[in-house]
Every structure is written in C-alpha cells, then in structure tokens.
Amino acid sequence: MPAVELINISKSYGATPAAREVSLTVEAGELFGLIGPDGAGKTTLFRILTTLLLADAGTATVAGHDVVRDFRAIRNVVGYMPGKFSLYQDLTVQENLEFFAAVFRTTVAENYDLVRDIYEQLAPFKNRRAGALSGGMKQKLALCCALIHKPTVLLLDEPTTGVDAVSRQEFWHMLGTLKARGITIVVSTPYMDEAALCERVALLQEGQVLRVDTPDALRQSYPWPLYAVRAAHMHPLLQDLRAYPDTHSCYAFGESAHLSLAHAAPDAAARLTAYLTGKGHAPVVVAPVAATIEDTFMDLLAQQQPAA
C-alpha cells in the first residue's frame, strides 16, 4: 500500500488551475520531494492530502485512507507543517507543544522520544513566546508540533523557505533521522539543491507534474552537451555566450555559466575558447560538466514556455 497516492487530481481557483490531473505515488518510508516555484501547485496538493481542501476531480489516499470519505482517520495519522507559520504566537514554545499533544489526546512525555533531538535545541527558549522566535527556531518548533502525535506520514510545505543555509542543513539532517524511523515524508521546496537530498522528486510547474524520478535519473536525463564556462566577468560572458551560434541555452550557475550546445562536437570546447578569447575574455576556462537537477528543471521549463 502506498503511503500517499494521487490519481488525476485537479483543482482550480476560479479560472486559475492550481493542479492539473496530478498523479503521484509515494511509497511507505520514502523521502519524497515536491519541487517547484511559487504557483506550481505544491500547497494545493498538501491541502488536498491533509483534507483541508476538496479537489474538483480525481481521488487521493493517505496511508490507505480516502481524503474525502476517511478524512477523520487521515487527520490522526498525518503530521502537517504548513508553509505559513501556524502555531500560536502568544503561547510559549512549551505551551504550543503541550497544546498540540493534548489535541491529539496524547502527552509530550509519551512521544518525547520522537522529538527529543529537535526539542533539545529549543529547550533554552521553552518559555519564550513562539512569535518571538527566529525563522530557524520557529521551523523546529513547528516540526515538533507536527510530530508529537507520532504520525506515519509527514507533510512539510516549504519548511526551509527564508531560512538560512545553516538551519536548512540542520533541518535536512533531522528529516534523515525521521526517515530512518520509518516515517514517510513528503516535503516541498523551491531550492533545487534540496531536491538532491530526496529519494525521488516530482518537478512541478503551474499545477502540472513535469517529471517524477530519482535525483540521479533526473540528472542523467539531461539531453544536451553541457559545459561550465568561466571568465573574469559574468555579465558580458553570458551575453557573448548567448550570441554564440551553436548555443542552445546559457544560464549563470554560481561562479560559472552553464552552456548547453545544440550539437555535440569533439572540438566544441576548443572552438568556444577561441570564440571567447576573440571577444576579449580572459582567462577563459571551458570544461564539460555533468548536469544538475536545476539544469534538468530549467530545460523542462523552457520546453513548457518557449522564449518567455
């Protein structure tokens, strides 16, 4: 039995489609990522799975329970962390946790084992009001509250958005620990580097699933010859690369530009180096590079909306 299953789920808000015939299966114990920008439909899918929103069409189950018929059962087995901070700002850290435990007719003590690692980081602030916590601390408290009734499926909507790189790294480490305890995790993120930390991901754009696969398979599916190009000044480098006759696409990628060519050629790097040197760039470094998930995602996006 899959932990989460969506079959042809569609949902529109007025004339705006938020989910278009989305079908996905998440296996029990899997760490599954929903990857896409704002407006891709990630939150809509979470709200349908948590029984907070009815789909216009299609069916969905969580832990084998139908989201419409068995909504009460789902609410007991799912832990949900909404994208918008939704704990009680006027209650302290400890009061929030006790409240969520009480709502699910359990106690903090009973399930403390599951949240211990995370809650210990919050312990120095346990008497602080939740509204006065930093982004990283709020995120940890929200995760504790989502876990305190020992859910089998954890649904996390953009838990790391707006959070600094250190807290993001700690958060993903916590997800790894929870996964090791057998909890199924569905997590959404706009950060492409986090996609690589999932076992499988769905790439979403404007309510549609562009592709579902493992990070490795997504990287390997990139269809073009790809080069990392470096020179002293990024902006003129990008402009000259975009004007190069055989360029298929060119995007800045940290300290390099990633250039995909329309045709593979054994002397492509040498020809490109000569072209850039002729344009006055120095020092020019051109090297073949393996595609990242972000390269694959941008290629899929460009196919969707040609020449935006």
């Binding site: 920008p37 706009p190 754009q205």
Partner: peptide
C-alpha cells in the same frame, strides 16, 4: 525568493544591467 530558476536568472540580468 520563490521564483523559478529561469526567472531568478532573468532577474539577475536586470541587476547586471542596472549595475
């Protein structure tokens, strides 16, 4: 924050132009 990776890079093109 929150925009797709292509739009994010297009935004940087605007930043480079302004600079």
């Amino acid at each position: 924050g929150g925009v797709d990776p292509i739009t994010r890079r297009q935004f940087w093109d605007l930043i480079y132009e302004a600079a």
